[in-house]
């Protein structure tokens, strides 16, 4: 059972539907016990960084997530969910993230339209099972205004170009992040989720 952390607003139903297509059972939850018993965790992405961290802290999930990840449980962060893995975000202030990965989150430079919205291509970096069976570059659906900076290069699996390089797929051990929405990226997105599920099984 996959625990999808349900920390408030937004469309997480699509993610559940996508997992169902892969015959993966998932549950929307904020219950620490359910999260501890789950085979893996997905931290989805909606809304603002501070609100999300506040919500996670308020229901006391910050420590649960950190402990489970340290114990080796696979976690996938999608969009804002991926950004929450990092040390800090500068979204309307200066906020601490979960600190599972080294790096910061900053606003996309205003030399391009913000939010970065639509289908953009992924360029592969470090080899990973995540991008197996996928072409050298492929389109996925992005919608975000902030992006990760100063990450460790060894964790970068895929990036896109939008007013500079934007980390799009990151992986470090049992921690995986996708800045785009695989559940909204058509057949390619489903393939990415299938690869992820295969990788952690």
């Amino acid at each position: 059972m996959i625990a999808i952390i349900d920390y408030g607003a937004g469309n997480i139903k699509s993610l559940q539907f996508a997992l169902a297509k892969l015959n993966k059972e998932s549950v929307l939850t904020t219950d620490p016990q359910v999260i501890r018993n789950a085979s893996s965790i997905i931290l989805p992405g909606v809304g603002a960084f501070k609100d999300a961290m506040d919500a996670i802290n308020k229901i006391g999930l910050s420590d649960v997530i950190k402990q489970e990840v340290q114990a080796g449980k696979p976690i996938l962060g999608i969009c804002l969910g991926m950004q929450l893995f990092y040390d800090k975000s500068y979204e309307d202030g200066d906020w601490d993230g979960l600190g599972l990965l080294k790096g910061n989150v900053s606003r996309i430079k205003e030399t391009v339209k913000v939010p970065h919205m639509g289908w953009n291509t992924i360029t592969k970096h470090n080899k990973s099972l995540l991008t197996l069976h996928l072409p050298d570059d492929f389109y996925v659906y992005f919608v975000h205004s902030y992006a990760v900076e100063e990450l460790e290069e060894a964790t970068l699996v895929g990036s896109t170009e939008y007013g500079g390089r934007i980390p799009a797929i990151v992986q470090q051990g049992n921690i995986t992040g996708m800045q785009f929405h695989p559940e909204k990226s058509g057949d390619i997105g489903i393939q990415l989720l299938a690869n992820y599920e295969e990788m952690i099984s």
């Binding site: 937004g10 469309n11 139903k13 659906y141 919608v143 929405h181 909204k184 058509g186 057949d187």
Partner: peptide, 24 residues
């Protein structure tokens, strides 16, 4: 599995919440 937008009759924050929770 592609994104979609929903409009029409959206008047309150609760209306928005409802359509997002329905999968928009």
């Amino acid at each position: 599995a592609i994104p979609f937008t929903v409009g029409g009759g959206i008047r309150t924050v609760e209306d928005i919440h409802q359509v997002l929770r329905s999968g928009a």
